[in-house]
């Protein structure tokens, strides 16, 4: 997946270079500049994720799936919104939770906030789109995630 993205970026840069050297040069300068500007936010995000993973280890995440009712939906959505777990780790974890008897509707809410709401990436989102947009997108995603779980509970 990651090789594919680098491959596409290299190929397109090559094509762009063949078509217009000056323009491509400007694109690369622009990209390096925006990376430099983002570095503090990116490092902040990285350390935040590390910290959250340290205080919320997998065993603790498993515990919240014991809560029943609306409180359960709220808690799993909240934890999903706070922690950031990359997909290749998150889905095996969700699979393990399912085997241990975690309700599927709670897993649906958890996966929804885990993927759509990101406390750790919110500074980055704000730097691109502003506070208002970020708050609205993440807030509405949080509410949607709980409703998605509730609806799936009635369908499953």
């Amino acid at each position: 997946m990651i090789l594919f993205i680098w491959g596409v970026a290299f190929t397109l840069t090559g094509l762009s270079f063949l078509k217009d050297k000056q323009k491509t040069y400007e694109v690369l300068i622009f990209s390096i500049k925006s990376l430099k500007k983002l570095l503090p936010t990116l490092f902040g995000m990285v350390f935040f994720v590390g910290f959250i993973l340290t205080i919320f280890p997998e065993e603790k995440i498993m515990m919240i799936f014991n809560h029943k009712g609306y409180l359960g939906f709220f808690l799993v959505s909240l934890v999903g919104a706070i922690v950031t777990i990359p997909g290749p780790i998150a889905f095996p974890l969700a699979g393990a939770l399912l085997k241990m008897g975690a309700p599927q509707e709670l897993l649906a809410s958890f996966i929804s906030t885990l993927t759509m709401v990101g406390l750790s990436s919110s500074l980055l989102e704000i730097s691109y789109f502003g506070k208002r947009f970020t708050f609205l997108r993440q807030g509405s995603s949080f509410i949607s995630a709980m409703l998605i779980g509730l609806i799936m509970g009635s369908l499953l």
């Binding site: 993205i5 680098w6 596409v8 970026a9 290299f10 397109l12 840069t13 762009s16 323009k23 491509t24 400007e26 694109v27 690369l28 622009f30 990209s31 925006s34 990376l35 983002l38 990116l42």
Partner: peptide, 13 residues
């Protein structure tokens, strides 16, 4: 991040 930012630059250009 690096390839994504390059793609963004190319898209813009």
């Amino acid at each position: 991040f690096p390839p994504i930012l390059i793609l963004m630059g190319l898209l813009e250009a």
